[in-house]
Design a protein around this nucleic acid. Structure first.
Length: 915
RNA sequence: AGGCGCGUAGCUCAGUGGGAGAGCGCUUCCUUGACACGGAAGAGGUCAGGGGUUCGAUACCCCUCGUGCCUACCA
């Protein structure tokens, strides 16, 4: 699900920018996921009774490639099913030759410049994967364990004397890992701790061994924890390692646990070969028998686990390769501080800075086989002390044939491979051909945006920034958009072991890619995790259906040449590549939709296009998604399509309305396309295409020139220029995904305002109907009265609409333009509904009239402004705010309470038809 | 232990220093030639709690409670 979200967001950006005229590169690919992949293949081998050592390195790697061929393909298949519009010709894999070349180049240069070095120190080790892990690859998890208090007898007391339990004869330490006492080389106390002053410098007998250890002091010891005395095991604990190295001379390192998680010979004959946890049990049993355990307490503590196989990790002292990243980190911090890179949402910058400022050297070697083998060779003779090579290694871009020091041909390559993230860190430039200075590199580096989850800010993002700055001298990307993590409905992270994983492909099978994509986009609010809900997907599937049906309605009404074709039959549809002129022409004159509804929907369309562009600019995917959803469903379908049903009856407005229907559909499809690529393409391929721009005003455009490409035999008929024209007019593109993204369309604020009154009036009527239970099939007489000049103006502007209503038999209309009043009376009913749009009503007089006459309803649009009854507000709020509120109030004359009274009044009046 | 975030309608979540929103669910009504995967009208919230700033706080500040995550060398 995380990958699906990631893919969808990137695809939305890619499609949007591509349609907006940018040259877009979205480069797909995968990394080789060293440890994880090796583990999977090893499991397969195990089920066949094999292991990698039996196969040998070369055969094993072939086997992994085979696996990769199968599953790498699945990833790509999933991307395609999600509709990812990647440049598939540029697909890359971190183990490709080109990328491997970049890896070797980077390694050698970092080594030559002294940033890469080899060191023997404590490292996190996974005993199951048998490899070193970087600090990031260890996950800490709280475990319920025991804190065991163990008594170390002070020398010169000897074990036989101890059985008496003399007081003061011990120093007691607390530990969660009793088995490690076999590797203890000291006991440490805080130098300020008065209890232990007298012990410092003395020695103690290490139980279960014949060794004597020193009691030392170190400020790192917390006197308040446990007994205030700590056993020091330098070879198996990071703290203890630090303490040991500080001592002069440094404490001895005794390794008692081996790389396989079993006790070594150093643990003594009784314990060697035992698993570390078996050994723990035995050690506790033995100590109990010696009466050296003071007590055991239940204790919660964090234990490191391998992030790939969940085995408990073990600190182990081994030689590994490291990158000194201190100076890179400083540059990387500066790049973000100076806003050459923007992390969005900005709150993640803190996380980034915190980690970067306290960054540790990066352990890059892994003791596995699947990955980039470290480009380091050793001379066999040197190992036998017969070669004079000083630093002991040959670091080279290509495999050396002979030792440069002794000319021996017996060279051995380092067995280890590099951390997968080492190659991933180079991705932004290695995939574009670096170290060669290719055209792609020149055009596309630095890239525009990286979209990713926060869980790999450190693993990947930070390292790409460091490597990009180091090797390209520029940031790898301008924006980093950090999207949310997808959780299940209870807010838990999805994981296979919890069984709460939702498979995107199942969602796609069930609801379709478009609905699934739209859901992800709608969920992608910044700065919050996503709790995935399947019902949302279902809801957006309904949206796809709604759009489909709206398109069907429009196709039914554009009166193209063949009425029998339905949308969805795009293959041989006569509508395929049909085009209509940018504006319908009649007798050489452009015929723009002049009805209010059309002007309104065009303006709303323009507003929504602006909203979407702005939202995407700021990575507010959810806002963009809800804008287009709201527009298509609740403005275009609920209002405009319904209104056209009467407008289409009017020969005067018919042509303009048809054009407007098609234009709005076309534009909406293009707006929606980045979110729902499949259904929008399908519909768009079916409908006649419309040019994307509108004229600023009533500008007269030249009549369309007849051209040879136009009217492929289908354009006949006297009035044909009024109809959608068949043909492949120039400028019409082949696919919606390369059509123009709608932008900067003209607004008509007057139409929007006027229409809002109509909508309010209609809603008022519906409310009355609903509350009075008037059957929808019962046609009402409607009387519309206006009381102000503004209302008059509105009605004048909407005469066309009202006339159409009248024509449809719904109302009779009468209007006196001279006086600010008009009325419309329905055909059948005697009921009248007043719709006062503006102005002051004499309520009392109205009520009297209501009583005398037949049923009438006073519909109100306004609510009371409470603020204007607040003395404090009137006296103390800033003048302009108060004035604004007053002005608002003056506009809003009719009060909600009055409506309700009127309605109550109505209920007392005799109303026909069960009301 | 530090840090970050969240707590708004039954559920999943937007949002804003001045009129509490969406989707789903729920109630009522409606199969009229795009759509019942639909249309119309509704019910439902002291915006976690307390204090402060302000003429005014769901929003800004502080505290408490609940909850999720990240980081860290707690034996």
């Amino acid at each position: 699900m995380g990958h699906a979200l990631n893919t969808v967001l990137q695809d939305i950006l890619s499609r949007w920018k591509r349609m907006s005229g940018y040259k877009v590169l979205w480069l797909p690919g995968t990394d080789h996921a060293g440890i994880a992949t090796q583990n999977v293949v090893e499991k397969q081998l195990a089920s066949e009774g094999l292991d990698r050592h039996k196969l040998g390195r070369d055969v094993f790697i072939k086997r992994v490639w085979k696996w990769k061929a199968e599953y790498g393909g699945k990833i790509i298949h999933q991307l395609k099913r999600l509709g990812a519009s990647c440049d598939w010709s540029k697909e890359r894999f971190t183990l490709d030759e080109g990328l491997s070349k970049a890896v070797r180049e980077v390694f050698v240069r970092l080594y030559e410049e002294g940033f890469i070095y080899r060191d023997n120190r404590l490292i996190n080790w996974c005993p199951r994967c048998n490899t070193a892990l970087s600090d990031l690859e260890v996950e800490y998890e709280e475990l319920e364990g025991k804190l065991t208090y163990i008594k170390y007898p002070l020398t010169p007391l000897t074990p036989p004397l101890l059985r008496g339990g003399e007081k003061g004869g011990y120093i007691t330490v607390a530990t969660t890992r009793p088995e490690t006492i076999l590797g203890d080389t000291a006991v440490a106390v805080n130098p300020e701790d008065s209890r232990y002053q007298k012990f410092i410098g003395k020695t103690a007998n290490l139980p279960l061994t014949d060794r004597t250890i020193l009691i030392i002091s170190d400020h790192a010891v917390d006197p308040s924890f446990g007994t205030g005395a700590v056993k020091v095991t330098p070879a198996h604990d990071f703290n203890d390692e630090a303490i040991a190295k500080k001592q002069n001379p440094p404490l001895e390192f005794i390794t008692v646990i081996g790389s396989d998680g079993r006790m070594t010979v150093n643990a003594g004959n009784r314990y060697k070969g035992l698993d570390r946890y078996e050994c723990r049990k035995l050690v506790i049993k033995d100590l109990k028998e010696l009466n050296l355990i003071e007590k055991e307490e239940l204790y919660k503590y964090a234990v490191g686990h391998c992030y790939r196989c969940k085995t408990i990790t073990e600190p182990l002292s081994t030689p590994q390769w490291y990158v000194n990243v201190q100076s890179f980190a400083k540059d990387a911090i500066r790049a973000v501080k100076e806003e050459r890179i923007n992390i969005i949402p900005k709150t993640w910058e803190n996380t980034y800075f915190a980690w970067m400022e306290d960054i540790k050297d990066w352990c890059i070697s892994r003791q596995i086989w699947w990955g980039h083998r470290i480009p380091v060779w050793y001379c066999q003779k040197m190992l036998n002390a017969k070669c004079k090579m000083q630093n002991g290694v040959i670091v080279s871009r290509v495999a050396p044939q002979i030792c440069p020091y002794c000319e021996s041909e017996e060279l051995i390559q380092d067995e280890d491979v590099l951390d997968t993230w080492f190659s991933s860190a180079l991705w932004p430039f290695s995939t574009l051909g670096w170290p060669d200075n290719t055209d792609d590199l020149k055009i596309f580096y630095p890239t525009s945006v990286l979209v990713t989850g926060f869980d790999i800010i450190f693993f990947w993002v930070a390292r790409m920034i460091m490597m990009g700055l180091k090797f390209m001298g520029d940031v790898p990307f301008r924006d980093v958009y950090i999207h949310a993590l997808i959780r299940d409905l209870k807010g838990h992270k999805m994981s296979k072991s919890k069984g709460n994983v939702v498979d995107p492909l199942i969602m796609i099978d069930r609801y379709g890619t478009d609905a699934f994509r739209f859901t992800l986009a709608a969920f992608a609010a910044q700065g919050r995790d996503i709790k995935f809900s399947e019902e949302r997907v279902e809801g957006y599937r309904h949206f796809v259906n709604k759009l489909w049906n709206a398109a069907r309605f429009i196709m039914m009404n554009i009166k193209a040449e063949s009425e029998n074709r339905r949308i969805g039959e795009s293959e041989n549809s006569p509508f395929h590549r049909v085009s209509v002129p940018p504006c319908p022409i009649r007798d050489g004159t452009p015929y723009w939709p002049s009805d209010l509804a059309s002007k309104w929907i065009l303006s709303r369309l323009a507003a929504i296009a602006d909203d979407i562009n702005r939202a995407l600019e700021e990575y507010r995917f959810n806002d963009a998604a809800s804008s287009i959803y709201q527009f298509i469903w609740h403005e275009f379908c609920d209002w405009y399509l319904e209104m056209t049903k009467s407008e289409l009856q009017d020969p005067k407005s018919e042509i303009g309305v048809r054009w407007c229907l098609l234009y709005t559909l076309d534009t909406s499809l293009r707006l929606l396309h980045p979110f729902m690529p499949f259904v929008t393409e399908e519909i768009w391929q079916t409908i006649p295409h419309v040019k994307s721009h509108l004229p600023e005003t009533e500008e007269v455009r030249p009549p369309t020139q007849p051209s040879p490409s136009r009217g492929e035999g289908k354009g006949g008929g006297g009035n044909s220029e009024l109809r959608p024209q068949i043909g492949n007019e120039s400028g019409i593109k082949e696919s919606i995904m390369v059509s123009d993204y709608p932008k900067s369309l003209p607004r008509d604020y007057q139409a929007e305002e006027d229409m809002s009154y109509i909508i309010e009036a209609v809603m008022g009527i519906r409310t009355i109907r609903g509350e009075l239970n008037i059957s929808p099939s019962f046609k009402l007489k409607v009387m519309i009265k206006t009381f102000t000049q503004m209302a008059e103006k509105i009605l004048k502007g909407n005469m066309q609409y009202l006339k159409n209503l009248a024509k449809a038999g719904e109302i009779k209309i009468g209007m006196n333009i001279e006086k600010p009043e008009c009325s419309a009376t329905s055909v059948k009913s005697s009921m009248e509904i007043y719709v006062p749009l503006k102005g002051v009503l004499n309520i009392a007089a109205e009520v009297d009239r209501l009583k005398k006459e037949e049923a009438k309803v006073d519909v109100s649009i306004v609510s009371l402004n409470k603020k204007l009854f607040n003395e404090d507000f009137l006296q103390r709020a800033p003048r302009e705010i108060v004035d604004k509120e007053k002005a608002k109030y003056e506009e809003l004359i009719i009060i909600k309470r009055r409506i309700m009274e009127s309605i109550k009044m109505l209920k007392d009046v005799e109303v026909r038809n069960d009301s």
